[in-house]
Nucleic acid binder design. Structure first.
Length: 724
DNA sequence: GACCTGCTGCGGTTTG
């Protein structure tokens, strides 16, 4: 074998031989060279099942075995975003570590207290943990952190792309900074990832102080051949006797997916329920065994485990109709085809989904995109006339083929998570000064966009007699306040993301899953859930439980949700598609007809010659050319001048009858940098878990750093000239 | 016009 193999410790070499591998994979060999003999941070980027775990751990375990560790504590730390992933990875690592004497400890909410107690008594080997459980260790055992992690050589961050820009990712980076501070030494970081949009930004996220030094090991080649089809459907054929678009899509899925393993991403939980119900019915009508099952976060763990097990079982063909639950990490084996109903919200997630198919050598990856558009009428909306769903789906596929995907937004303040970390540090240390908190979280930690004055404003907000999260002792030390004590003492504290309140649904004494509280249900009402139909028997509002029995009809419940964020680049690709004339070969005839119709309407409306089009006495369409963040910013700015605004992907629909200022003048004023109050319409600014403790001013600043982009207004409006 | 993720400590009972 290669020189990389020679660098591994004996017991690890023995394990590699026992696998019967002829060669280490290229990405593994390069990762071994990058990890052994250096203390560099490393990102290993390879497709799902590309051997990333081994690439990182074979050399890391070897290093641990080759060094004489005198200090106690865990040798290696692994942070994973899912409990199921930790359980999977612990099993794989346990196998590698069989002959090394290194214990492997999985640690999350479902791991028994005895396993945790044993690991705490004699910390050693590899610890695999969730961000929340690590947070709990800091809060409950803050003083023991040096003892537990004093000898830790490296931390492996799995699914790095999934935590880069999220509140949870900020939490992880904060925990890593706190870990290095408590142990008094830097701990090398190894990130594992499949999809990364911008490597420079990913490096900065992994190690903000020294991104240039992060070593990148990226798998080359090995990409499966991609087979694509985009099918177009038109709904609302009142005059036709034919099936509805939903039925037509379900029938097509039934015909083409039956007999193999597949994933159907339906976009929303309600859609998952509708398609799963139709497909179950088609199986029953044809007297065939059931093989289509729904999978989303509101279904019971028991049902989801059943679907995941069936997907892994080669003997039973299974198609899961799902949301992004089946997008990440957990091993469900290879699937034949990935279907996507409606356009996805990001190219990154489309790429991640597609990575589930075509993983075996010689097998292509197959993507079936279904786009449903509404039949046009005289009063059809701009979105329908321009076929925005279909054009966005084409734009996403084109960007996927170009290899592009969305980078994270680097300048967000993340004030909600900052509040969480302030409470956590105070709890873990039993008190802290404002200066200590600022240094630890904002200077050395991930909240570098937060200035000292802004940080003090946050501390003041959570220290008021209303908020009572923190209070100051005589000597200046900050302590938990009455509300803070209660918050931190409850086990719900550790996660940084909010969770909605829900009813549990129970049938025959078994848990079916849960639905949001906003569903108003009473005895006798019928619903579709878990792909089947039910009648409500009893609503227990005290225990938040609804009992149901099987029925013949029903409608899916409401699951709520908030609008997705589309990147600027997707909108400019959509414009290229409107203004171009190329017909992609992967589109079927109805889809091409819809595309031709979209282009005809785009030109007929006049967008090819002017981005602002007058459609009535005081009504306008604007092609802003911007993604959701800038589009929403412009919408709020125009609303502040009294215009009524409706948002679409890359477009705004304006009614100016009641405006204080004509549209042209409004745009001119914004183009020249004139003052504007984006919050005049009092938009909802509380969307993160700890936002409720912040002042209106802080909420606005937080929104401006993440959801809006006020400084872009002059540039956006400078491009928009109204033709008179 | 959306999706997903996570959870401690203690008291009581049973078992060796």
């Amino acid at each position: 074998m290669s020189s990389a193999f020679e660098k591994l410790a004996r017991p690890v070499q023995k394990w590699v031989r026992a696998q019967g591998w002829k060669e280490l994979r290229d990405v593994q060999a390069r990762a071994i060279h990058a990890v052994c003999g250096t203390s560099d941070d490393v990102i290993v980027a390879a497709s799902t099942a590309g051997g990333k775990t081994e690439a990182a751990f074979l050399p890391l375990i070897s290093q641990v075995l080759q060094a004489s560790a005198e200090q106690g504590g865990f040798d290696l730390l692994y942070i994973g975003p899912l409990k199921a992933l930790i359980t999977d990875q612990a099993r794989r690592l346990d196998d590698i570590c069989q002959e090394t004497g290194l214990p492997v400890t999985p640690w999350h909410g479902d791991v028994t207290a005895s396993v945790k107690a044993r690991a705490l008594r004699a910390p050693h080997g590899i610890l695999l943990i969730t961000p929340e459980s690590l947070e709990a260790l800091f809060v409950r055992r803050g003083l023991e952190i040096p003892r537990l992690f004093g000898a830790t050589r490296a931390v492996v961050l799995d699914e790095l792309h999934s935590i880069l820009d999220s509140e949870r990712g900020v939490q992880v980076r904060s925990l890593l900074a706190r870990l290095e501070r408590s142990t008094g030494h830097p701990i090398r970081r190894i990130g594992l990832s499949a999809t990364l949009g911008d490597m420079a930004l990913a490096r900065a996220y992994l190690r903000a102080d020294d991104p240039e030094a992060v070593h990148l090991v990226k798998a080359t080649g090995g990409e499966a051949e991609l087979r694509l089809q985009l099918r177009g459907y038109v709904s609302g054929n009142q005059n036709d006797a034919g099936p509805s678009a939903t039925d037509a899509v379900a029938e097509h899925l039934f015909r083409h997916l039956r007999g193999s393993n597949n994933l159907v991403f339906a976009g929303a939980r309600q859609q998952v329920e509708i398609y799963a119900d139709r497909l179950r019915e088609l199986c029953e009508t044809a007297q065939l065994p059931q093989e289509f099952y729904p999978h989303h976060a509101n279904l019971s763990r028991e049902h989801r485990d059943f679907v995941e097990r069936r997907l892994k079982d080669a003997g039973k063909p299974t198609t899961a109709v799902c949301t992004s639950t089946l997008e990440l990490g957990i091993d469900i084996g290879d699937v034949t085809c990935v279907a996507q109903i409606g356009a996805p919200f990001s190219v990154a997630s489309l790429r991640q989904r597609l990575g589930r198919s075509g993983r075996r050598a010689g097998q292509p990856a197959i993507l079936r995109q279904y786009s449903i558009e509404t039949r046009l009428a005289a009063d059809s909306s701009l979105a329908d006339r321009l076929r925005l769903g279909l054009v966005r789906a084409v734009a996403m596929i084109e960007l996927l083929l170009e290899g592009w995907c969305e980078p994270p937004r680097p300048d967000a303040l993340h004030l909600s998570t900052l509040v969480h970390q302030v409470l956590s540090v105070i709890a873990g240390r039993g008190g802290a000064t404002a200066a200590q908190l600022y240094r630890q979280l904002c200077q050395d930690g991930p909240f570098r966009q937060v200035s000292a004055p802004l940080f003090l404003e946050v501390l003041r907000a959570i220290g008021t007699s209303d908020a009572r999260l923190i209070e100051q002792a005589q000597n200046g030390l900050l302590l938990l306040g009455e509300v803070g004590e209660k918050l931190v003492g409850h086990y719900g504290f550790y996660a940084v993301f909010p969770t909605p309140e829900e009813y549990r649904l129970i049938a025959g004494g078994r848990d079916l899953g849960s639905i949001p509280l906003e569903n108003v249900l009473s005895r006798g009402m019928m619903l579709i859930f878990s792909g089947r139909r039910w009648t409500v028997q009893e609503v227990d509002t005290v225990n938040r439980a609804i009992t149901v029995t099987p029925s013949q009809a029903g409608v899916p419940p409401l699951f709520g949700g908030s609008p997705g964020v589309i990147h600027d680049r997707v909108i400019s690709k959509m414009r290229e598609i409107f203004e171009g004339d190329r017909d992609p070969g992967y589109m079927d005839r109805p889809a091409l007809e819809l595309l031709a119709e979209a282009r005809r309407n785009y030109h007929a409306l006049g967008f090819a010659t002017s981005p602002v089009v007058q459609t009535g006495e005081s009504t306008f369409f604007i092609a802003t050319g911007c993604g959701t963040v800038k589009n929403t910013t412009l919408a709020l700015a125009l609303q502040s001048f009294g215009h009524e605004v409706q948002e679409h992907d890359g477009f705004l629909e304006i009614a100016s009858a009641k405006a204080d200022l004509p549209l042209a003048e409004s745009l001119d004023r914004l183009a020249s940098g004139g003052a504007v109050d984006l919050f005049a319409g009092r938009p909802n600014l509380m969307f993160e878990k700890f936002h409720r403790y912040l002042t209106e001013d802080l909420l606005r600043e937080d929104a401006l750093s993440s959801r809006l982009q006020a400084e872009a207004l002059p540039e956006i409006c400078g491009r928009l000239h109204v033709l008179n």
